[in-house]
Write a protein that binds this DNA or RNA. Sequence first.
DNA 1: TCTGGGGTCCTAGGACCC
DNA 2: TCTGGGGTCCTAGGACCC
Length: 437
Amino acid sequence: MSSTQTFFPSNAPRGMVYALVDCNNFYVSCERVFAPRLQGRPVVVLSNNDGCIIARSEEAKTLGIAMGEPFHKREPFLRREGVNVFSSNYPLYGDMSARVMEALSRFTPHQEIYSIDECFLGFVPAPDADLLCTARHIRETVRQWTGIPVSVGLAPTKTLAKIANRCAKKDPASKNVCLLGDTTTIKQTLARTDVEDIWGIGRRYARFLHTRGVDTGLDLVRMPRDWVRNHLTVVGLQTVLELDRQPCFVLETTPAPAKSIVCSRSFGRRIRDKQALGEALARHIQRAAERLRAKGLLAHTVRVALETNRFQPGPQYAARRCQTLFHPTDATPALHKAAQGLLDILYRSGFAYQKIGVTLLELVPHNHRQASLFPPAAAETGRQRDLMRTVDHLNTVYGRDTVTWAASGLGPQQWHMRQNHVSPRYTTAWDELPCVG
DNA sequence: TCTGGGGTCCTAGGACCC
DNA sequence: TCTGGGGTCCTAGGACCC
């Protein structure tokens, strides 16, 4: 890549127009749909384990509550200010997300669901007025159908669409819709955008860039390409090209197959005992295997990671280790056996553990089982598959963990996570009805 | 007492092979 | 005195995202 500048060429061809639709304060908005009394009041939603604050209403932001703050440090303040606090309720948010995405799919066949609360849409180029009209229509439709407010940013690349979306959210005059179309507008906007607010520039890169006097998007796009490549890797280079209106990130309309499945949780309180760690690990394996089967995949490698609380003073311990299986599998018992073997190797007595996690790697589609010199007996895998299918079916119909493995513990679970402020599963609570008994 | 979880990608360095 | 070089695989670590 040469360092020749292609800084806003006046004859740049116009390709697709990208829209980024982002739900405003999504988790908070979901809670508000079912509790309208929360409108206009400060609301926060906590991470798993009630650890950090991960979503804030505008009113909560105004109170000076930051993203990612530890809940326990802020709890007295939140109480004093009368802030409404919710544990995260992913079944609810997932369901609301699906409704939003369904509404968006009506506007174009070019849709990339980027995250639980964000979606890229692709449109053919059109006059600015028409694009803005479509954006407003999207906003109204989603609000009407789901109750969720969204912002829409439009631009010639995904990275610029992200910036446009940010403008749509921040500038009240925009009414949550913003188009970055012509060169002048893009340039002016980049000059007002700090590098840390650019998609792909995280905290570390931002700090580095500031030390070099690169403070805004406009500063960044003016840097020599080789310099960017050397200091920010090829990914950073793509980001810079995108700021320069050259699309590098295309619309991924079909989701790529998963490459890994992680299941990992902090404990509600510290665990010293290997038996309890084993039970928590067994539970993670169960979850991970369920997700693996739901995706129609087999895992070839299992990884277990174990760690103590890195925020505590004194000696801490963290370790992880993989085991590759002889045959890829989606059977809970085989994955469980591998994971427990890894725990035996990793466990050190005398530590207070904070977290254990499992990762399934080298995932392959289950119908593409690689030809093996020593294939597992067909009858055996058939029986196992039937068993797993039955377990998954029962758990789907009668609720999570209706059928479970003894290895995950039958007594009270000292490792269970905290979740003290959870709202009802308004839209998916059927699996908790008393008739299940 | 209490600091999330689930992902992806890139790079560097070591081991090993020919 | 001289001590290759290129390819691949693996792992760890670092960076980013939501």
